[in-house]
């Protein structure tokens, strides 16, 4: 790692001020950023750790929504959200490993927008609202391609608000070495329709599968997508799986998620 200064502000306001410095970068749980720094793929002059910002931690239910602070760890979501939004708790409980889940945060995951990460699928599949120190961003506007989001320089995800669906499920086909999603599909059924979000599969990062949404909004059953197929054109092809294989998996995992939805 190159040398850098590190600050630990206690409030969002102080964190935003600290991020105003040149080449400053926010540090969430560090489970992606620290390995990246070790490889010298990033060289910020200053890190602003968000782990001491208590107002960004914790989970709260409010009028059909669940609001999760941006600095809340995966372990906390896994243990505290199950009663309200079990599919989201299950997703959090299967990210990385227990030690990673004790450090990694929802805000960090969404800000990074890794194309194979789990949380982007939950946020997009739930039509969540990304809340920052400046504004509220609909998930449909937030994700803008692999590792790219609507966040501006120095903007911090302070919380994420998920509308709680009638039913939902996340199915992850793990890449056996990294345990990231080779393909992951989040399906959520709301009174006004079904949302289907796919992670791990596309060169464009997390995205919705609108044909499946239409079919499942009409009939919420795995058979409803039997006649659909997924185009392999923009999908990732690597040593772990071809684009055609991922296209097949998208459909299979969607069907499994519908069957398992609760």
């Amino acid at each position: 790692m190159y040398a850098f200064d590190i600050e630990r502000p206690a409030s969002v306001a102080d964190a935003v001020a600290a991020l105003g410095a040149e080449d400053a970068q926010a540090l969430g749980g560090g489970q992606t950023l620290i390995p990246t720094l070790k490889q010298r793929l990033a060289a910020p002059s200053r890190l602003v750790s968000l782990s001491g910002v208590t107002e960004m931690q914790g989970v709260a239910s409010e009028a059909g929504n669940i609001r999760i602070g941006g600095a809340t760890t995966h372990a906390t979501v896994a243990s505290q959200v199950g009663g309200t939004y079990p599919a989201l708790a299950d997703l959090a409980a299967n990210i990385g490993d227990p030690a990673v889940r004790n450090r990694g945060t929802i805000g960090g995951s969404l800000a990074n927008n890794d194309p194979a990460a789990c949380y982007p699928a939950a946020a997009l599949g739930s039509g969540a609202t990304i809340i920052t120190n400046k504004r509220q961003i609909a998930a449909d506007d937030y994700f803008q391609g692999m590792f790219t989001t609507a966040l501006e320089e120095g903007e911090i995800i302070t919380a994420v608000s998920f509308p709680v669906p009638e039913k939902a499920n996340y199915q992850k086909f793990v890449q056996p070495a990294s345990r990231f999603a080779l393909v992951g599909v989040f399906v959520a059924k709301y009174s006004d329709g079904v949302r289907v979000a796919v992670t791990g599969a596309s060169n464009e990062g997390v995205h919705r599968w609108s044909a499946a949404e239409d079919a499942l909004s009409a009939i919420f059953a795995a058979d409803a997508i039997a006649g659909l197929s997924v185009a392999a054109d923009d999908l990732i092809s690597d040593l772990h799986g071809s684009a055609d294989y991922r296209a097949h998996l998208v459909k299979v995992m969607t069907g499994r998620a519908v069957k398992a939805a609760s």
Partner: peptide, 9 residues
């Protein structure tokens, strides 16, 4: 809580 000491400052 268990954490990986190589991935925490």
């Amino acid at each position: 809580e268990a954490i990986k000491a190589c991935t925490m400052f």
